[in-house]
Simulated scan of single mutants.
Amino acid sequence: MKPERACTPKQETFCLAYIETGNACEAYRRAYDCKSMGAATVRREAARLLDNPTITTTLTALRAPAIEAAQVTLAGHLSDLADLRDKAADAGLYSAAISAEIARGKAAGVHVEKSERALAGSIQTITRIELVSLE
């Protein structure tokens, strides 16, 4: 299998502009001289670049740190909610502490919220939170 080749400087500029703007045509205009090109040509050339395996690999590599930083883990989420619960309880804000604890239970799958609608002349919504056995 042939190793991927590195991007040219213009391709690298295209990739960086595409990550910044999310617009392939704008990225193409920033990276290449398009003064004599029509809009359709710019679109076609930008699409061609996005189909290029070297460009795809570079875009994936450029996105990886942002994607990793944006990941929310269950453990981190539960820990943050526990911190909020503790701070709220320490401040005497028991309603907020209880809400944070309920949110922790929902995130962990311990509490399941169910809603039912009864149609007997009027619409009535009944919401209950059930404790789910973890065994």
Rank of each mutant, 00 (worst) to 15 (best):
I67D: 12
E68Q: 07
T73D: 10
E135A: 15
A97Q: 08
V110F: 01
F14R: 01
Y32K: 03
R48D: 09
I67V: 14
L16E: 13
I19E: 12
R117H: 11
A118C: 05
T57K: 09
I55D: 11
C7M: 10
A107E: 14
I123L: 14
A40H: 11
D83K: 07
N23R: 04
L93E: 09
N23L: 08
A24R: 05
R44F: 02
D83A: 04
C7G: 01
A118T: 12
E113V: 13
G92C: 01
G22T: 02
A70L: 06
K87V: 09
Q71W: 15
A103T: 04
D90A: 05
T60V: 07
A31L: 06
T127R: 03
L81R: 01
S99M: 11
C34F: 13
T21E: 04
A96M: 08
I102K: 04
G76C: 11
A66R: 10
R44G: 02
T21C: 02
L84C: 07
T13E: 02
R43D: 02
T127N: 08
E130W: 15
E4F: 02
D80C: 11
A103R: 12
C7P: 08
I55Y: 14
K35S: 08
Q11W: 03
A17V: 03
A103L: 11
L50P: 05
D83P: 06
T41K: 03
L93G: 01
I55C: 12
A70C: 10
Y18M: 03
A103Y: 06
E20Q: 13
R63I: 00
R117A: 14
L84V: 07
A39I: 01
I19T: 07
I129G: 04
L59T: 12
R5W: 06
T125W: 15
R48Q: 12
A118Q: 10
A61Y: 01
A108E: 01
R117G: 10
E116F: 02
F14Q: 01
A89L: 05
L16W: 09
Q71C: 02
A24F: 04
T54F: 07
R128E: 13
T56Y: 03
L134S: 12
I98C: 03
S122K: 03
A64T: 12
V110A: 04
L81F: 09
I123S: 14
S133G: 11
L84Y: 08
T41Q: 13
R5Q: 12
K10R: 14
D33H: 12
A88I: 07
S79F: 15
G92H: 01
R44K: 12
C34Y: 11
G105S: 03
L134H: 07
S95A: 02
P3N: 13
L62Y: 04
L131F: 10
R30C: 08
L50A: 07
T56P: 04
L134T: 14
K87D: 15
V110S: 02
A64L: 12
D80Y: 15
R44T: 11
R104T: 05
A103H: 05
A88S: 10
E4D: 06
V112L: 04
K114C: 10
A40R: 13
E113D: 08
A120T: 14
A75G: 08
K35R: 13
V110R: 09
R30M: 09
A27N: 12
T125H: 15
C7Q: 00
A88V: 04
S115R: 05
A107I: 09
R63L: 01
M37K: 13
L81E: 00
L50K: 15
R43N: 05
I19C: 07
E12P: 00
V132Q: 10
